[in-house]
Design a protein around this nucleic acid. Sequence first.
DNA 1: TTGTAAGCGTTATCAC
DNA 2: GTGATAACGCTTACAA
Lengths: 338, 338
Amino acid sequence: MAAGITQRDIASSLGVSISAVSLALSGRAGVGEQLREQILARAAELGYRPNVSAVALRTRRTKVLGLLIRNLRNPHFLDVIDGFDETCASAGYDVMVGSSRYDPDRERELLDAFEDRAIDGLAIAPIGASRQVRQWHASTKRPVVLLNSAEGGDRQTTMSVRSDQRTAVDLAVRHLVDLGHRRLAMVIAPPDKSPDPERWQRFHVLSAQLDFAATAVTTELSADAARVAVADALRGAPEVRPTAFVANSDYIAHAVYLAAADCGLRVPDDVSVIGHDDLPTSASLSPPLTTIGVNRREIGERAATLLIGTLAGRPPEDPDVIVAVDLRVRSSTARPTV
Amino acid sequence: MAAGITQRDIASSLGVSISAVSLALSGRAGVGEQLREQILARAAELGYRPNVSAVALRTRRTKVLGLLIRNLRNPHFLDVIDGFDETCASAGYDVMVGSSRYDPDRERELLDAFEDRAIDGLAIAPIGASRQVRQWHASTKRPVVLLNSAEGGDRQTTMSVRSDQRTAVDLAVRHLVDLGHRRLAMVIAPPDKSPDPERWQRFHVLSAQLDFAATAVTTELSADAARVAVADALRGAPEVRPTAFVANSDYIAHAVYLAAADCGLRVPDDVSVIGHDDLPTSASLSPPLTTIGVNRREIGERAATLLIGTLAGRPPEDPDVIVAVDLRVRSSTARPTV
DNA sequence: TTGTAAGCGTTATCAC
DNA sequence: GTGATAACGCTTACAA
């Protein structure tokens, strides 16, 4: 029944002014030491809780941070949310989530809703171009951090957190090349759907440096589509087809498993597979998946920290955080047999 | 730059009163038809967006629904959030999430925060006793729906959505008994941590009805703890140890896999395993997991629908929703060999 | 140091 | 039907 106790109640019960109460409660100067303590005591005694709407109306601060992601069905984001949520909680912020579901219109709606609700800051994994996001930032003047966004153009206005894609590709490729593979394929999404171009670019560079044949298997993000596309790539003669696949997610890696089976090939004997993101169950696949580990919670944590720091007036030295990745070798990779 | 246009601006730009604008905008009676249209037109033209904080302060309504879950690391809740989020979005509600992390203090904090923020309704998967929740409901007078909560005591005050636990147990047990198993074990959490008592109870009843030996393996929810506890239960001689395990989640089912391996036993040859919840990757485990499927998104959707309906003044005919479950037979169950 | 009072943008109660 | 005007609970100049 905490609802209902206002600063006015405290003030009148103590015979002092409302402003004294306000000052005391918000810990600012301008009120005597003993009076402050009296007020604090009475507030606690009465079970006073500030009315957030009133504070928000006055200060235009809500102590709410928004988290706008692309897809609520991917466990990847779960951990991101978890890390974000925990960091926010320990700093007294609450979080509002939304999923754009890869729909630009919905992204726009959510952005508007967040603006209307006057959230204090936003972390967003934008879909496609980040124009809308830039606009949001311009119009709200609130700090924004981009999550795993390929775009690096607007470093002045927004911050970012992303995993180290470049190293991810390096680790995967080096592992495969070290094993003796010379014909590698990378499964990538259409350029407009993901931050993959950067990955492919790096893959291509390495192909020249390390002297292996690089194939791009372009496919939609769905497991079914990937399965078909990869099976296609696997149809060639043993001497020409890729002996190893670098997937852009563990889901896709699993689709590669299925595609291999479709073609009567075994993993890792006939084809090696490397995933990306190390989902909780990837170690339990058959065979256990070699993949790139990313600290997903850290992504959420860092994003929240960036926002909270900025809001507290201590902007980070480096507004662009790169989260480390590591190679987790399991059993889906082996020496090539041909 | 939508920020800044207020009703006052519309009013003065039209030379009418603020109250006319307010009435027109909120679609209530008390303003002439042509004036209303004029106002609406001007509002659109100016890009007017109501100030949510002001509305909340006045009306104590926020158009925000809270979702408080136990654990943000379990994909189960991802789908629940997704369904909840989508339903809320299409009804103009935003959602605020929080995770209690199985910590009663944190649950209390979040409940307080939600109360302070004056959310319009709450969906919660409570930990342990739901006393706090009942209290929240009493103090806020806001609709509450319990998610997968075992408690059925306070049907008058709160609503609920849960999967059909009873049928889940029936399906699992019947499948196992039909295969020929006569010594079944159920992995359950300590009574204060989950809605498991109901499951165990049913298991026990069936044990008498269908004439099989029922063992309870009580363990903490973590995979490691379960692995040890199950391995313990598996130590007995082949003629006495359980030949099949019913787990309360797919995670735990996987822990049973590991425990079996620890004991040099094979799944499903030596021990059959049934999970619960059918996580996205359960079909890819080795062997693919037989489990109980639940429409997790539906849980979130129904919860949101219950809340939204109640808030709109149309309370549901049945405040207690039971979401159907089904058995998904894969390869972790087989006839017992002993 | 303390108190008074003017808003923040709405909604709601009145007169007219 | 329409327009002043008083809240809602708080912050913040400005006076005392």
